[in-house]
C-alpha cells in the first residue's frame, strides 16, 4: 500500500517559537491515522502544513505525491477534505444552501447532500438556517461539508469536540464507513477514546515533537506492566507479575475459588500519554 502522506524531518517555526520540530511519519493509503496531543501541541499546525495553508520552515513534505504548495491547483484540492476549528458556514443561508454551494464547487450531484446529511445524523434539518443551529449541529454540517466530495484524503481537527456521546458514536460509524469506501483519514484529537476506537495508528505529539507512534494495541502492550491484578473475595488486592515462576500461585488462587476479579494491566492511551509526557491530554 502506498504512502499518501510522507513527512520527513519537518520543522515549523513562528519567529522564535518552534511549533513543530523534526517531525517524521507517513500515512498509508486507506489508513486512519491519529495525532494525539493537548491543545497547543502543534496538531493544527501540522494539518495546515499538509493542506498548504502554512509553509514549512525545513524538511520534506509530500501529500498525494506532491508538495502541498501545489494545492492551489483544482485537481489536488478536489482530492482533499478539511475540517478544522476555523472551518465555517454561511450563517444567513440554510444548511441545504451551504451544502449546495460545495456540491457545485466540487461538481458532485445534489443527491449527495442527502447522503452526507444522513451520515452526520442531520437528515430532515436541510431547511434550518445555520445561525439558528446549535454548536453540535453546526459541527455536524461542517463535517458533512468536509466529505461531501468523497475526498481521497480527509483532514479532521477535533471533529467531535462539540458533540454529545450519541452523535459522536454516529459520526464514528460514518467515518469508518467513509474509510471503508476508500478515504484515508488524518485525525487530530485529544480524545483518547476516539483515537482508540477509530485509529489504525496514533502518534503522540507533545511540545512540537512526536513522542511515540504505533498501533494503539501495540502501545498499550508496550506500556503495560504485564502483571495480573487480582481481587479476592476477601477484598484483597494482589498484583502478580506475569512470569512462569508465578503461574503456580495464580493457578492456586483460581483452584481455591478465591478470585473475585482478575485482569491484566491495560493502560489507556491517556495513561500512556501521561506516562510519556507527565501531562494530561486536555
Amino acid at each position: 500500500m502506498g504512502h499518501i502522506i510522507k513527512v520527513n524531518q519537518v520543522q515549523k517555526k513562528f519567529q522564535q517559537t518552534t511549533a513543530l520540530d523534526q517531525i517524521s511519519f507517513h500515512v498509508s493509503e486507506g489508513e486512519i491515522f491519529g495525532m494525539l496531543g493537548p491543545s497547543g501541541a502543534g496538531k493544527t499546525t501540522m494539518i495546515k502544513l499538509m493542506t498548504g495553508e502554512l509553509g514549512k520552515t525545513a524538511g520534506d513534505l509530500e501529500v498525494l505525491g506532491k508538495n502541498p504548495d501545489a494545492f492551489h491547483r483544482s485537481s489536488y484540492k478536489a482530492q482533499i477534505g478539511v475540517l478544522s476549528d476555523n472551518s465555517a458556514l454561511y450563517d444567513r443561508l440554510s444548511v441545504l444552501d451551504n451544502l449546495k454551494l460545495f456540491c457545485k464547487l466540487y461538481e458532485k450531484p445534489l443527491s449527495r447532500i442527502d447522503e452526507v446529511l444522513e451520515l452526520v445524523n442531520m437528515w430532515g434539518e436541510q431547511k434550518k438556517i445555520v445561525s439558528k443551529l446549535s454548536k453540535g449541529m453546526r459541527q455536524r454540517v461542517l463535517l458533512a461539508k468536509s466529505f461531501i466530495h468523497q475526498p481521497k484524503l480527509l483532514f479532521l481537527d477535533e471533529p467531535t469536540s462539540a458533540l454529545d456521546p450519541g452523535n459522536t458514536a454516529h459520526i464514528h460509524r460514518s467515518l469508518r464507513k467513509l474509510n471503508e469506501e476508500g478515504t484515508t483519514i488524518f485525525l487530530n484529537t485529544h480524545d483518547m477514546q476516539e483515537a482508540a476506537d477509530l485509529c489504525d495508528r496514533v502518534a503522540f505529539l507533545h511540545q512540537g515533537k512526536i513522542q511515540e507512534l504505533d498501533r494503539p494495541s501495540a502501545l498499550r502492550y508496550k506500556y503495560s506492566s504485564h502483571a495480573f491484578h487480582i481481587t479476592t473475595f476477601a477484598e484483597e488486592e494482589l498484583v502478580i507479575e506475569n512470569t512462569p515462576d508465578n503461574a503456580a500461585e495464580v493457578a492456586q488462587l483460581i483452584a481455591d475459588g478465591a478470585v473475585k476479579e482478575m485482569h491484566t494491566d491495560n493502560p489507556t492511551l491517556g495513561d500512556i500519554f501521561l506516562n510519556i509526557t507527565g501531562k494530561e491530554l486536555v
Partner: peptide, 12 residues
C-alpha cells in the same frame, strides 16, 4: 467569518 478559507480550499 473564515468562509473564504472554505472557498480557497475548494477546487475554485
Amino acid at each position: 467569518k473564515n468562509t473564504l478559507r472554505g472557498l480557497t480550499l475548494s477546487p475554485a
